[in-house]
Design a protein around this nucleic acid. Structure first.
Lengths: 230, 230
DNA sequence: AATTGTGAATTCTTTCACAGCA
DNA sequence: TGCTGTGAAAGAATTCACAATT
């Protein structure tokens, strides 16, 4: 554990499954903090996060530092801080949302990303009827100004909230403007150079997976670990 | 351990990673069909879906029937049909959206789920100012009528698009009304009995994972397989 | 006594590589 | 020839189980 080059900055990338769980632990820790808890056990935290204690401990062990105390549990603010630092939430992320329809406006109003270094700097739309409207305290800018706004506002993360038919075009423009982190809500697989990180949020995918489980009669519940017997 | 699953078509439950990819293959097949292609090779299809050919073939082999022809490729409509049948998209899924804010309205207007057996039957909201409005051709119903609407419309799938603070309450009501498939857009981990399937869509999670990769300078691209040098 | 941290065992997933078929 | 389908191999992720620590 004194071995610093194993994990930490510049160390190895964490498995994606671990990353997804870390975001959930972080949320559960924030809820625990609001509830006034100073420490949590892996069992409590895992249960709030819908995970199991063993994998939680394994995940945290990949983070490096040791934020638990044996016999006691994890220090709530300390661990939250450590996870936040690992995820890069101490930096400033300057976002733009492309598309000011219902979805873009909903995302703009979503408060969940504030307070973790995410700041919404611009919202853009192609349609003249949307341009100029006020959304979440910002004026909607014309899509044609994408490149200059990205530069002027130092935008380094973008959210695509446009119809599928134009999403790839928007993606290309974003890449050309230097953006390398994109969250895509349009129902298309975007093609982009390998250095661009794209995450996809896809309602159809989720509905189809739900349909599969319901169709098969499989009870698949992420949130509740199987009980140990014996 | 008991092997509790002997499903139809000689199928046990498919791995979740496979399910997620199947939905992408399906979309790519539909695009190919629109483009007039009759057959696709695993290489072409994988490239359109951002996967690699080997895992695509393995995924399809888990489905049972054989929809490829050696030396030729896959029959586009045949394979699309087979994947659709596997996912349960031949059945009728009757949906309700809870929450008629920007997000609920955006989801209601999202055409992507139509034509795959998904039919939006109701949209509900707590607030009297939303009730009665017309959204996607439906009138917004009061949230208090949830149980009776679910029964009257035989709703069997629900989408939660309400603020985090009330999401667990809505979830409890849905479960009480007999819903066992829930897609949750609220940023909370829902607690529900194991027989209820819940999928979570979470903007914070995705942004935080993007932040991690950008922070670490890791290029992680799901959508594009490493290019072969040619 | 309680709970973490982690090697070892297990299970799951992906990739390889090639036989089999059109 | 070209491409699928699939066992076998390799690689990851998860779970177990217990020594270490407060």
């Amino acid at each position: 554990m004194t071995d610093r080059d194993t994990q930490q900055h510049g160390g190895r990338a964490l498995p994606e499954a671990t990353l997804e769980r870390l975001t959930v632990y972080l949320r559960a820790l924030e809820a625990a903090q609001l509830a006034g808890q100073r420490t949590v056990s892996s069992e409590t935290l895992a249960s709030a996060a819908g995970a199991n204690p063993a994998i939680l401990r394994k995940d945290l062990s990949l983070l490096g530092g040791s934020f638990g105390r044996r016999g006691v549990g994890y220090d709530v603010p300390g661990l939250a801080d450590h996870i936040g630092a690992t995820l890069g939430l101490k930096r400033q992320w300057r976002m733009a949302i492309i598309g000011a329809g219902n979805l873009g406006r909903a995302l703009a109003g979503f408060s969940g990303f504030r307070g973790h270094g995410f700041e919404l700097k611009a919202i853009l739309d192609q349609s003249p009827t949307e341009v100029g409207r006020s959304v979440a305290g910002l004026r909607v800018s014309p899509a044609s100004e994408l490149e200059s706004i990205v530069a002027a506002e130092s935008v380094n993360m973008a959210v695509i909230a446009v119809p599928g038919a134009v999403a790839q075009g928007v993606c290309d423009q974003l890449v050309a403007a230097g953006i390398r982190s994109i969250l895509n809500f349009a129902p298309v697989v975007l093609q982009a150079p390998a250095e661009v990180n794209i995450r996809q949020v896809d309602m159809s995918r989720e509905l189809q997976i739900l349909a599969y489980y319901a169709h098969q009669g499989v009870g698949h519940q992420d949130a509740v670990p199987p009980l140990q017997s014996e």
